[in-house]
């Protein structure tokens, strides 16, 4: 195997995934035009890229409770949480206490997605 074949093959992953700088793309492309063995390697790199992407895409996201945990640990301690509805659709109202105040937030949940519909932030000094 020639030296430029070795160098090209190390770059084929990034050529296949679109992660090469334009100048490197040009070098790889020029080599591929003249080297059938490396073209076969490129076909393999493209197959692997497709298979990995399709496999990883099937991993679902984190459960909803992960966001609740993050919010509780960044916003303060949850004081109250009221939820209505089902796993498909519903609304929730939450109040926390933290160093930045006493925020109250309302959220709408629909088919696994959540959006905030309102937020009221009240400073601790105003609450006392």
């Amino acid at each position: 195997m020639r030296q430029d074949c070795t160098e090209t093959r190390e770059l084929l992953t990034w050529y296949a995934s679109g992660g090469l700088a334009p100048s490197e793309q040009g070098t790889v492309l020029a080599h591929l035009g003249a080297c059938e063995a490396c073209r076969l390697e490129l076909a393999e790199a493209l197959r692997v890229a497709r298979a990995v992407r399709s496999t990883v895409r099937q991993i679902p996201g984190p459960p909803r409770r992960a966001l609740a945990h993050v919010l509780a640990n960044t916003e303060g301690v949850p004081i109250a949480e009221i939820e209505m509805g089902s796993s498909l659709a519903g609304v929730s109202l939450g109040m926390s206490a933290g160093e930045r105040g006493l925020p109250i937030r309302g959220r709408l949940r629909l088919l696994g997605r959540e959006v905030e519909i309102f937020r009221v932030s009240r400073s601790l000094s105003a609450a006392v």
């Binding site: 992953t13 990034w14 992660g19 890229a49 990995v52 990883v56 099937q58």
Partner: peptide, 29 residues
Amino acid sequence: LASRVWEALGRLSEAHREVVFLAYYEGMS
């Protein structure tokens, strides 16, 4: 196919898996 790919990823070291993820899934240079 996904099952075979996932098994093969499991046979790689963690150091190799992270590069595969970042290059192929995230498209990082």
